[in-house]
Nucleic acid binder design. Structure first.
Lengths: 249, 249
DNA sequence: AAACTGTCCACTGTCTGCAGTTTATGTTTT
DNA sequence: AAAACATAAACTGCAGACAGTGGACAGTTT
């Protein structure tokens, strides 16, 4: 089939071309970057016009994101970015602790020196970025670290679940002016995890991870706790208070 | 708004109308029932003709299922039902143990007497179905029980994750003539879980659940272990050995 | 003034059609 | 006869168009 050695790489690039895929990434970026805010409606026709394409690829992307729970859809009315309640924060972070702890348990026995070095380098990058005030890079390395651990677990289910959680977390913090941990502190918070992993102590590693995630959780929770003690900021989709339903599998 | 009490039910029926949704359910059923077998191709046009609709709703459904990982897509070549390796079995079941254990931890403190009664009734139904040889009902109650526990956790992330796992498990066992646990034994295996929950002992409940899932895991694993010790039966999508890629978020 | 009814507009859900690829078939060449 | 090639069929990806529904607004009624 492929006579040219570089065909695979080229092929992959070409594959990425599918318009639906591009739209999906475009939308995911809009969601996680805060350009799209909770409750916002997604206008298929307008988006298609903006991107200079037809509505079909747009619909496929949007429909997929709805199936995955990142958008809520109201039949015949459109798709909306979810709204988040304090409970959503708790659900996401408690589940995240569950998943990433499990990832560590599966990853650690499989890790070799190069893997540990990898993680160490990521933390160094975080610290350097924090010192230099490059917040975007800090954030990026942060995500990469957590993701890497899930990859190292070798468990595709875990990795897949983490991807979903990761997206949710980014959506949660995207549109609030988050009262964040100080950058350097945030970067340093990952040191104990990587060190514990390097020592080979599973329980210590899990504990370190849990502690770190609980700290982050607390920061995010504080934001959502403000506008109403436990009461829903707005329940998913105020656009149609009674019958908005999440597209389910 | 609604003066008529049954309006909600009616509304739900009307909402269900979307063709994409219907196709999605149709396909999910085909996947989990074994009517579609791993490696099988999904022919959009043919499916559309069969259902008497156009290709658009079909594409939306298929695309969504691919994004959720239930299908693999090969650009310009089509969508295929995943193939499964022994590792997939291990990944799914180990992760399932992680998720359902977590569900119990969150659910138990929230459970009230009616909830315990609910679960007890489900187990009774399983036992009755097993004794009567109604395997379909047994299987259905089994799934309902596990799902109910995730619901009782009150954690939407957990429930969502469980839905994905549940689908994967059904796909895993759908097309193999599974060497199953004897029906009655399978039904009775759930008793310790529900009893432990009723006693309020979290650790005992978790242990019971883990034991049960490990037993099931072993049965499924045995099937996949046969055709090659650890070697992939076939890796995802032999249709295009080199460049099948999973549609990712 | 408040509630109700009817009309208009925007948008979703779906269909048909077309272009470019991939796969299958048949033919030629060695 | 097997392999390579050429041609035809089939399918995916995308575009454009249409019908039906929901929502907003204005006019009307009580």
């Amino acid at each position: 089939m492929s006579r040219f050695p570089e065909t695979n790489a080229v092929q992959r690039l070409i594959d990425t071309l599918s318009l639906s895929d591009q739209v999906r990434h475009y939308l995911l970026d809009a969601l996680t970057s805060g350009r799209l805010r909770p409750g916002d409606r997604i206008n298929e026709a307008e988006l298609a016009r903006t991107l200079g394409i037809s509505r079909n690829p747009v619909r496929e992307a949007v429909s997929g994101l709805a199936q995955r729970g990142f958008l809520v859809s109201a039949p015949r009315r459109g798709h909306f970015l979810r709204r988040f309640t304090p409970q959503d924060v708790d659900d996401v972070f408690s589940f995240r602790i569950c998943v990433e702890s499990f990832a560590i348990r599966q990853a650690l026995p499989r890790m070799r020196q190069p893997d540990h070095d990898d993680l160490a380098r990521l933390v160094e990058r975080m610290i350097a970025a924090a010192r230099a005030g490059r917040l975007a890079e800090l954030h990026q390395a942060d995500m990469a670290l957590h993701r890497r651990i899930c990859e190292l677990s070798g468990n595709r289910q875990t990795l897949r679940a983490h991807e979903g959680i990761d997206t949710e977390v980014q959506m949660l913090i995207a549109y609030v002016d988050l009262e964040r941990e100080p950058p350097l502190q945030s970067a340093l918070a990952h040191l104990p995890i990587v060190e514990a992993l390097a020592s080979g102590d599973v329980e210590r590693s899990v504990a370190a991870m849990q502690h770190h995630l609980e700290t982050t959780w607390a920061f995010v929770h504080r934001m959502y706790g403000r506008s109403g003690r436990g009461e829903p900021l707005v329940d998913a989709g105020d656009a149609s208070p009674s019958q908005v339903r999440r597209t389910r599998g």
